[in-house]
């Protein structure tokens, strides 16, 4: 027996409420983030990730209060992503009780930011979030590129090369989202997940596309991910975290039960 594979529920938070956008259109309200985080903790979540999708700058303090409240009663690792652009943003989240921050577009805009952040706060709290989309045609060897702005803006950067570069710059973990699969409930992009996981020495969290419990297990077994992240299948109580873990265990995956 050894290290358990992690299940990480993700809460998309907009103005202090948990929402789940299906392909960013139909945004459904899923409730109070503190209440939901408490439930996930009770059900055995290994970590919790908050993704702040609040559009207006004025309302960004809301996520800080959410993290503060959750951190004073939930004692598992907490990650906050969304809108992390400066060292000061990171400090604010860590002071609120986050253990890690997710950096996405700010890393694409300025890779040095990841290096500075890792030097200042330590690699253990720097998660680089990568949104990747397949760009190769059928019949060609698979190739994925980094996209920003919710998958709308191509950057021309190769996803595998980018993941390696981010680790060199000090990322302690990679949160990998397939923009082709996000919101589809068709399962992770397994070849992408595996390619990134085998390319980097740090843990990789698979994200984007989970629709059932087998998808989670596939991400670990075939995608070689170290952790799996999902949002909607947990929010609307289709499955509990515990059910997900028992299912993964039944497929031979080591989990914390």
């Amino acid at each position: 027996m050894s290290l358990a594979k992690r299940i990480i529920p993700c809460l998309d938070v907009d103005n202090g409420r948990v929402v789940k956008g299906v392909k960013f259109v139909d945004i459904r309200d899923a409730g109070d983030p503190v209440e939901i985080a408490r439930r996930y903790d009770r059900e055995g979540a290994d970590e919790i990730t908050f993704l702040d999708i609040t559009a207006t700058h004025d309302n960004r303090d809301t996520i800080v209060h959410v993290v503060e409240q959750v951190a004073s009663e939930v004692f598992i690792p907490l990650t906050v992503g969304g809108g992390i652009r400066t060292l000061d943003d990171i400090r604010r989240m860590l002071n609120a009780g986050a253990d890690k921050v997710g950096i996405n577009s700010a890393a694409v805009a300025n890779p040095e930011f990841v290096r500075e952040a890792a030097e200042r706060f330590g690699s253990q709290c720097i998660v680089v979030a990568i949104d990747a989309k397949k760009v190769s045609q059928a019949g060609e060897p698979s190739r994925w590129e980094i996209f920003t702005h919710g998958g709308r803006k191509p950057t021309g950067i190769d996803a595998i090369a980018w993941a390696k570069k981010m680790v060199d710059y000090g990322a302690g973990e990679i949160l990998l989202t397939s923009m082709d699969r996000d919101g589809t409930r068709e399962g992770f992009d397994l070849p992408l997940t595996r390619a990134i996981s085998e390319a980097v020495p740090v843990p990789v969290i698979a994200s984007g596309g989970v629709g059932n419990l087998d998808h989670l297990a596939d991400g670990i077994i075939e995608g070689k991910a170290d952790a799996v992240l999902a949002a909607s299948i947990f929010h609307f109580a289709e499955y509990t975290i515990e059910q997900a873990k028992r299912h993964m265990a039944s497929r031979g995956i080591e989990v914390r039960l």
Partner: peptide
């Protein structure tokens, strides 16, 4: 035969 990641990160016994 899978490579183990460093840092050792997560829940272990």
């Amino acid at each position: 035969g899978n490579s183990l990641k460093i840092p050792h990160m997560g829940w272990n016994e």
